[in-house]
Design a protein around this nucleic acid. Structure first.
Length: 290
DNA sequence: CCACAGGACGGCT
DNA sequence: AGCCGTCCTGTG
C-alpha cells in the first residue's frame, strides 16, 4: 500500500477489492451519496470526503496524510485481505460464489458506534431512502456544519449535543415513533447505563445483550451495530432481504429467522458477517425473492 | 381512498 | 417461551 498526498487529496495505490458503489450501497451506511461522475461523497467522523477509484488507486479528496492514517485507513478496512475472504466464501457453493463476484468490491466499514446505533434504530421497520432523509434532517439540526465544495454538510450529532432534548425536539425529523427510542439511547449513554467504548472488548453475545437494553434495539438492529461498528464478524444480520435470499437458494419458503441463523452459524463460521454482506447486496440488487 | 414496505414492542396466552 | 396487533411515514 503506497500512500501519498497532493492538492488536499490522498492517493492510495494498489488497492484491490474496493468498489465505492458496492461499499456504499450494500446497506451498511446512510451518509454517502453518489455524484454525477460515479464518485461518492460522504460524512464520517466529522469530516467530509469524496472517494473514487482510478487506475487501481483509491483517491480520497479533501483530506490529508494525518487523517488518512488516523481515520480512513481503518474506516475503509484497508488492512484486511478481502481476496482471501472472497476465495474462502466462493469455495462454499455456486450461489455464494456468484454473490461474491457480483459484489466483488464490498468492504465492511468500521463506523462510529454511536452513529451506527442511532442510524440502525432509525432503520428498523423503515426503507433506505427514508432512513437517509431522516438522518440528514437529524444531522442538519443537531450536528456541526462542514463546507465542502459549494455545499454544506453536517457532522453526525454526538450524545452531548442531545442530552437536553425531549422527544418533541425530534419530531421534525419525521422518524415517527422511533424518536422515543433515540431519547432512550441518549439517556442510557448519558447515565452510563451502557458504555459504548467498552462494547468492542466484550464477547459478541455480551455486547449484543448490552445493546438490547436500549429500546428500539432488537436482534436485527443489534447485529447490524455489532457488525458495522464493533468489528464482530461472527454474526449474520437477518432482515427480510437476507431471509428471502436464504429461503430462495437454500432453505425453502418455510424457513424462519431461526433457521437462517442456524444455517449461517453452521456454514459460514467466522465469516458470517462478510457472507451476509455479499448475499444481501446480491439479493437486493437482483430483487431475489420478490 | 387503500395496499404495501420495513423490525421491535408489549400484552396476551 | 411464542404469537400477533400495533407503531409511523412515504410511495404506488
Amino acid at each position: 500500500m503506497k500512500v501519498y498526498e497532493e492538492n488536499n487529496q490522498v492517493i492510495v495505490e494498489d488497492i484491490k477489492d474496493f468498489h465505492p458503489q458496492h461499499i456504499f450501497e450494500c446497506g451498511q451506511c446512510f451518509r454517502w451519496d453518489r455524484q454525477e461522475d460515479g464518485s461518492y461523497t460522504g460524512v464520517a467522523f466529522k469530516k467530509v470526503v469524496n472517494v473514487r477509484m482510478e487506475h487501481g488507486a483509491l483517491v480520497i479528496k479533501n483530506t490529508n496524510i494525518d487523517d488518512f492514517y488516523s481515520i480512513w485507513k481503518d474506516y475503509f478496512d484497508l488492512d484486511r485481505d478481502y481476496s482471501m475472504i472472497k476465495e474462502r466464501l466462493s469455495r462454499h457453493d455456486k450461489i455464494l460464489k456468484e454473490a461474491v463476484q457480483f459484489g466483488w468490491g464490498i468492504r465492511i466499514l468500521k463506523q462510529d458506534v454511536w452513529e451506527c446505533l442511532v442510524s440502525f434504530i432509525i432503520s428498523s421497520n423503515n426503507l433506505i431512502p427514508r432512513i437517509k432523509k431522516i438522518i440528514n434532517n437529524f444531522s442538519e439540526k443537531y450536528g456541526q456544519p462542514i463546507v465542502f465544495g459549494d455545499k454544506v454538510y453536517y457532522s453526525f450529532p454526538e450524545p452531548n449535543d442531545l442530552y437536553d432534548l425531549s422527544v418533541e425536539d425530534l419530531s421534525f425529523c419525521r422518524m415517527g415513533y422511533r424518536d422515543q427510542y433515540i431519547m432512550d439511547a441518549v439517556q442510557k449513554v448519558k447515565h452510563k447505563v451502557i458504555d459504548l467504548e467498552n462494547l468492542k472488548h466484550l464477547p459478541t453475545s455480551e455486547a449484543k445483550k448490552e445493546l438490547m437494553k436500549i429500546k428500539g434495539i432488537g436482534p436485527k438492529v443489534a447485529d447490524c451495530i455489532l457488525l458495522f461498528s464493533l468489528q464482530k464478524y461472527d454474526i449474520f444480520p437477518t432482515d427480510v432481504w437476507v431471509r428471502r435470499v436464504m429461503q430462495h437458494f437454500y432453505l425453502g419458503s418455510n424457513a424462519d429467522i431461526k433457521d437462517v441463523q442456524k444455517y449461517s452459524d453452521l456454514h459460514y463460521g467466522d465469516l458470517r458477517g462478510f457472507a451476509q454482506q455479499y448475499l444481501f447486496y446480491y439479493a437486493r440488487e437482483q430483487r431475489i425473492g420478490k
